[in-house]
Design a protein around this nucleic acid. Structure first.
Length: 565
RNA sequence: UGUCCGAUGGUGUAAUGGUAGCACUGCAGAUUUUGGUUCUGCCUGUCCAGGUUCGAAUCCUGGUCGGACAGCCA
């Protein structure tokens, strides 16, 4: 029912597309593109855009191109190109052979620039960058015309060619579109469309020393590729008149095919930052351990953290597409993650904060293999054996000497169930000299094997546990949100966003995991019962298990106990 | 004293002139060998003022509030 309703309700872009389809605007074709600049790693915000562009193509039987918007050689690197491709592929999208680069269009872009110079719509300006900025005016005050604006076409052509030939140093000249310095839209005030950069480009090498600006490259690239719907974020809304202006002035038939730009609201998430500048700074200044640090909102970070592509795609679906600014609760992302992992994850028992429990009446040399279900949500995943013996580890949080109301785990004299094993009762508490609880002495009921007693008596709590002698030691990395504040951009004067960093975003502990973990490899995902979802980190080695906590399970008890104070 | 865009529960997002719905969150309960999952119920909303209309979240007018734009970044 809900699903059916959803399929009927369209977002505003789908409405536009369906309308275009109905009116046969592009011969029934839909061609979108995802246009990243290779100057950083992709993040969850990009994932929304990827899912939108590729998703629309899938839905309307169209295609989506991958196009690197690589017009600025100073900031772009091959490393980023590679990571971007890997991330999109991992999300499950395929651009087939349509891997394009704006830099592949440099020749065409240059020709078009010459074309508009000839038509009198562009000029070479040799004002300094400061001068250009100073004469641009303000949003409420018109700019001033450049003294170079009225050069002859011949002079402009000559100068532009010499710019291309490398005769002038960086910053000495630019090519500007001749539009309107008094336009209320700042972007129409004779925008710079070419600048000189004697820099080597990751693809074109040293062929060029002039590079087109975004505004001169994007719409034209869309046109070259035959893009029907060019989707971008809201901040490009004010660029749209320029996007259209460029097309108007290069096309022989402006009434014929042309791409259209549509803008949607970018994704914002609380408790994290999405700006490339800030993410770069977190990496460069070593606040995190690289772009794929599991605390990063990058796709590679989420992947390493243990997120699944499905959970991210589902998230993108749920946040929707609209033009209204939004801040999504990180809780929704985590909900989508748990929803997916709950269906798929192998369950195992692992203890993160161990407390030794000795079963007094269990034979010292005995070991039993007990049956455990691999995934209660998916019977086909089968069962496995877990070793049980006299000395166990249980979770420290599962024992309280003086429990408050509603605590139904272990405490002196109380009986609980060990999952898949036996009922046990706590008899004694052993302490160190400084009073810390170091060990519990318990007894078990041999008749309760498997977790049920023949007399039908009930216990309220079920605890996870491992057999100390059989457990596998592991380094467990407990991650928490990277920032303490919902809005990390909101920081005190004189400080910066890093003042909002959560100092406890990573805690490393030693845990004990049931032997099943031995055969796992990097990327494998598990639910440690009652604790959360975990995955094997690539830092793992043959003799060293490193495990990331992806996300905790929903914890009703934590909520209750917090409320009780 | 600019141009453009936006405004629906706590957060997102539908309703396209005809009963304001869905998801997440929160709260209450049922089930449960994970205080997980699942299931049930409940709370909470159309920025304001006029107008058009039998009827307005939707159309019109005027406000208010929020955002984007002054890189030789994208």
């Amino acid at each position: 029912m809900g699903k059916e309703d959803n399929s009927k309700s369209l977002n505003f872009i789908e409405e536009i597309i369906e309308h275009d389809l109905k009116t046969d605007k592009h011969d029934g074709k839909v061609l979108t593109r995802f246009p990243p600049e290779p100057n950083g790693y992709l993040h969850i915000g990009h994932a929304k855009s990827i899912c939108l562009n590729f998703g629309l193509a899938e839905k309307y039987n169209g295609k989506c191109n991958l196009r690197f918007d690589d017009t600025n050689p100073l900031t772009e690197e091959v490393e980023y190109v590679e990571s971007i491709k890997e991330d999109i592929r991992w999300l499950g999208f395929d651009w087939e052979d349509r891997e394009y680069y704006a830099s592949d269009y440099f020749d065409q872009l240059y020709e078009w620039a010459v074309k508009i110079i000839k038509k009198g719509f562009a000029y070479v300006d040799e004002s300094s960058a400061d001068k250009v900025a100073a004469t641009r005016g303000t949003p409420t005050r018109a700019g001033e015309e450049s003294p170079y604006k009225n050069r002859s076409v011949e002079e402009n052509l000559d100068l532009f060619e010499r710019m291309k030939n490398g005769e002038f140093p960086d910053g000495s000249k630019v090519l500007r579109a001749k539009i309107d310095m008094a336009s209320p839209n700042m972007h129409m005030r004779d925008p710079v469309i070419y600048r000189i950069k004697h820099a080597s480009h990751h693809r074109s090498g040293d062929k060029w020393c002039i590079y087109p600006m975004y505004d001169w490259a994007h719409g034209q690239s869309d046109y070259i590729e035959g893009i029907t719907h060019s989707l971008c974020t809201l901040e490009f809304e004010v660029h749209r008149p320029l996007y259209d202006w460029c097309l108007d002035h290069i096309l022989d038939d402006p009434e014929g095919y042309r791409p259209r730009q549509y803008e949607f609201a970018r994704l914002n998430l609380n408790y994290t930052v999405m700006s490339k500048r800030m993410l770069l700074s977190l990496v460069k200044d070593a606040y995190v351990n690289g772009w794929d640090d599991p605390r990063m909102p990058t796709i590679s970070g989420l992947r390493r953290r243990g997120y699944t592509p499905e959970s991210i795609k589902n998230f993108a679906e749920r946040v929707g597409v609209a033009k209204r600014e939004n801040v999504i609760d990180i809780g929704l992302l985590e909900y989508c993650l748990r929803e997916d992992l709950n269906k798929k994850a192998q369950r195992i028992l692992g203890v993160i904060n161990p407390l030794k429990a000795v079963i007094e009446n269990y034979p010292e040399d005995k070991t039993e293999e007990l049956d455990a279900v691999n995934n209660p949500e998916d019977e086909s995943m089968g069962t496995r054996k877990i070793p049980f013996s006299r000395v166990l580890y249980i979770e420290k949080d599962d024992f309280m000497e003086d429990p408050p109301k509603k605590f139904f785990r272990l405490s002196p004299g109380r009986e609980v169930r060990l999952r898949y094993a036996y009922f046990i009762k706590c008899k004694d508490v052993i302490r160190s000299k400084d009073g810390e609880i170091t060990e519990l002495t318990c007894t078990y009921d041999p008749a309760s094997k498997g977790g049920q007693s023949p007399d039908g008596r009930k216990v309220k709590g079920t605890l996870h546990w491992v057999s100390a002698a059989h457990a596998v030691k592991a380094e467990i990395r407990l991650y928490d949100r990277l920032f303490n504040t919902e809005d990390p951009y909101d920081f005190e004067e004189g400080r910066d966003f890093t003042s909002n960093l959560n100092p406890d975003s990573l805690k490393t502990v030693t845990g004990y995991i049931e032997p099943f973990i031995k055969d796992s490899k990097a990327g494998d995902k598990f639910q440690f019962e009652r604790l959360g979802y975990f995955c094997i980190d690539p830092d793992s080695a043959k003799d060293k298990h490193v495990i990331n906590r992806t996300v905790t399970l929903k914890d009703t008890w934590a909520k209750i106990s917090e409320r009780q104070g």
